[in-house]
Design a binder for these strands. Structure first.
Lengths: 354, 354
DNA sequence: CTGAAAGCGCTTACAG
DNA sequence: CTGAAAGCGCTTACAG
């Protein structure tokens, strides 16, 4: 393949000038730039990323770490982040933890990411103290999405999970429900970490605000997935008298709950109302009421906040200034909290609405 | 950060020996290897990918191109491919085309991938002649998943879409349906390309085999998505007397169809049966009958077939020999066709089964 | 089994 | 605005 020397020779300039012209640096005369661009095009020259990275010290690459790309929220975040990153000229290295602890360690604890990327985006990734130490040693800019993985010095984009859960529970209370169950993520689950804790807190807060003491027998833990929702709901039903409503910690669990209820011969919403959190693509098809969160926007905004200090690769500044999150005392930016909204569909109704 | 010289000095060997020892080359004595490994660990040495790639000529990276990571099939394929690739020591560069023609051109037609990756995995990516020319010039090993994107010399992993569609349609015929509609992908849709053509062909073949002449008014095109299924079904219902059954070209379209039928006051399956193709995660929750395809296995197998000629990065050979697809006359390997299976749920029943 | 040295293909001070 | 030269940090023949 053609190298930078070939272009330089054809354009009659030095390789340094080719390098500058091709990257759009301002210190090249218009005439020279044109000649270089023409030569590069004629030779179908493409810069060698390895050489460029080694010499320049920047990789033009970002690592995006997600628990499971097959889940709605993570796929949606990645899609939006990908668009922004590639638009800015960055490559996206995908790491799917898949709940495998050893993979997490390989990605986060070894110096694997060292010199491989210019920045890291951690989506809902549970972080242990050892991970934080390793990340700090990497000394790379990063950003987290979703609560739970706070890295000192990194900005964070997320929703207010406590408030979202409160809103979901309050919707059920407003409909007249008193016996409201909660189906949520397991603390042992690598994927759920603190998100489910926040959502449980919101659930309990809303109940207490309505004068109801949370009933532990109505609070079941399982995995943060369709299957987890099914299992948790089956367990709930096995415990005795069913609740009149279920607040599931995410839409996928809610869908699993609906499935389990149907299998048990209970109708939604006539016998049991169900609400989730997310705004999943398929919530509409299933008639699932939910607290919708802006997943794509979180991905896009996170990509942007990550790149802001790195600078675009393409030269162009990003359209419109991103709101740089204000920093707290210790220099850690304040989390950027995006709004959620209640979407009422057919899965929620007043109790006993036969 | 520590460089290879630091390790060499500490271990009392040359950098060449460090390089060999760390990569597990056999030409290093056990004692030396141990000393090098100890030194590397003590210094927390991590090789610089850029330098290694530039010197070695291999990137240890694979590009995975998908139409939309948010769709079930693509996310599932990527998840499985990711696991295999990372397990073999390769990085995964994700490209999400997102239906944007200009993105496809930037990825496939420019020499963007040149020197950036060692191999390319194209998942259901529509390829124009100009794309094929560009890919050939890249001169990289590659693999395609899903029919439609045949690249000369590249192996292909897929299902038999015609047979899958035949099986779906036959299931409806076997139940006694005669008025069977088809809801499928639009030829203008960048994402669907030939998959929907094959599935339509299977639909028609099954009808004809049953002595039924395909009725164009029962064949509606739309996008290969939930929304597309909804729109197509609404259009179908607007045309007059509804069919007694719908074969949707994928599960997401089938889900959209179910949603549209419900909105029109029609019950599934009492008034209209619905079947899809995929085996989507949520098919069970929705009670959707489908022709299930092994998506994860396609991703895993494709990753493996792609890496086989490249050799693992970690040194270990892959467990068990992959079945190398036999080549045709022109050297293009025969496609590897994976099996599908009919999964009957509640969305299909005999017509008029009130 | 090991080392000295060249070279991978760029970018970046530095000098002009 | 432009060029000569050093250097980025490895790997790979080559020689021993």
């Amino acid at each position: 393949m053609t190298r930078i020397d070939d272009v330089a020779r054809l354009a009659g300039v030095s390789t340094a000038t080719v390098s500058r012209a091709l990257r759009g640096l301002p210190t090249v005369s218009a005439a020279t730039r044109l000649r270089v661009l023409a030569a590069a095009e004629q030779l179908e020259y493409a810069v060698s990323p390895s050489a460029s990275r080694l010499a320049g010290g920047r990789t033009g690459t970002v690592a995006v770490v997600v628990p499971r790309i097959t889940r709605w929220f993570f796929a949606t975040v990645v899609e939006a982040a990908e668009e922004f990153l590639h638009g800015a000229g960055y490559d996206l290295l995908l790491y799917n933890l898949g709940g495998r602890e050893q993979v997490r360690q390989r990605v986060l604890r070894t110096a694997n990411l060292h010199k491989r990327v210019d920045g890291i985006m951690l989506v809902a990734t549970p972080l242990r103290p050892a991970d934080l130490t390793a990340l700090a040693r990497l000394d790379l800019p990063g950003i987290t999405i979703s609560s739970g993985s706070h890295v000192p010095g990194w900005p964070c984009v997320r929703i207010d999970d406590v408030a979202a859960a409160r809103a979901a529970t309050r919707h059920l209370l407003d409909l007249g429900h008193r016996r409201i169950a909660h189906v949520s993520g397991d603390p042992e689950d690598e994927l759920a970490f603190t998100t489910h804790l926040d959502r449980r807190r919101g659930y309990r807060e809303a109940l207490r605000a309505a004068g109801i003491t949370p009933d532990p027998s109505l609070d079941v833990e399982s995995q943060f997935s369709i299957c987890g929702g099914t299992r948790a709901t089956a367990e709930l039903l096995a415990r005795g008298e069913p609740p009149t409503a279920i607040f599931a910690a995410c839409d996928e669990m809610a869908m699993g709950a609906i499935s389990a209820l149907r299998d048990a011969g209970l109708r939604v919403p006539q016998d049991v109302s169900v609400i989730g959190v997310d705004g999943h693509d398929l919530a509409g098809v299933l008639g699932l009421s939910t607290i919708a969160q802006p997943a794509a926007e979180q991905g896009r905004l996170a990509a942007r906040l990550l790149l802001d200090p790195l600078g675009g690769c393409g030269g162009e500044p990003f359209p419109g200034p991103a709101q740089p999150p204000r920093a707290d005392g210790d220099g850690t930016p304040r989390p950027v909290i995006l709004p959620t909204r209640l979407v009422v569909r057919e899965s929620t109704a007043p109790p006993g609405a036969h």
